[in-house]
Design a protein around this nucleic acid. Sequence first.
DNA 1: TCTATTTCGGACAAAATAGTCCTTTATTAT
DNA 2: ATAATAAAGGACTATTTTGTCCGAAATAGA
Lengths: 144, 144
Amino acid sequence: MFSKGCEYAIRSVIFIANKSTEGERCTLQEISIGIDSPLAFTAKILQRLTKSDIVTSKKGPNGGFGISTNKINKTTLAEIIHIIDGSAVLNHCVLGLDQCSDTHPCPVHHKFLPIRNEILQLVHYTYLKEIVSDLSILNTYIRT
Amino acid sequence: MFSKGCEYAIRSVIFIANKSTEGERCTLQEISIGIDSPLAFTAKILQRLTKSDIVTSKKGPNGGFGISTNKINKTTLAEIIHIIDGSAVLNHCVLGLDQCSDTHPCPVHHKFLPIRNEILQLVHYTYLKEIVSDLSILNTYIRT
DNA sequence: TCTATTTCGGACAAAATAGTCCTTTATTAT
DNA sequence: ATAATAAAGGACTATTTTGTCCGAAATAGA
Ligand code: FES
Ligand code: FES
């Protein structure tokens, strides 16, 4: 459904957000271990998230990554997905037609549309805030 | 969501099924043009579908691909997907955890599960028969 | 039987994705 | 100032996916 990079991105941001709510900045290494992802590749992903102003970064000793309370409250999964995988990923035709449209639908279009809308709802209305609180309350995990 | 090969597979089978209901066998070339897919790559996919007994093939003049009425009635999208992409494609964790489970869920697991079930329903209960009749009735398309 | 047609099957090639390595830059503490 | 720390950025490599090419095998018709 999503690229590896996008999976790491979401898990990274959740990890950072969780630490930030505890008032702690975290390093690339901590993130990579915390979400069980390849370090150097995760670094690349974090660069993009930093440039897109989802997370903040600071070089040097006691540096690392963080995310503001404001961003935790307002950032949705959709925004992260959009930055890493682009907007097309959730709007492609299931059978690979060049574009997905009501006027030129593939044979599963009408059945799939309501499902896709649920997915879009899910990512557009799931905020980091909620996910972070679920981490402790619902016992969810971002690494194996 | 699915690999390119799987997209071509589904569209190929629909094309063949449509022709077969009209009593006509069709060649690789006709299929490739009919669904707008790379010919040689589609050939590979069709080989697998033939080996898996979804479609039948016949070499030589007036040869080509076909599918029995029985198969059209009984084959679902899920079977085609399973042959080409394997069973994992629809059961992977959305955030890339090694396995998706209720006892070790990722932060979107609980929200995503009902959606995944709808997708599973969709592919398990959508038969070729229905798709083929929709082609003419609902004006759906398998090529751009 | 000979030839044209069409799938089969294996090896190969290109492109996209996933991931690494190393140097530079910024920052902090000594 | 200097040294240590940590992200930034660019070039490079590996793996997977997607796709091509070509000869062999089967079949039908002349
Ligand atoms: S046209 Fe295929 S999903 Fe919309
Ligand atoms: S554990 Fe992530 S979707 Fe089930």
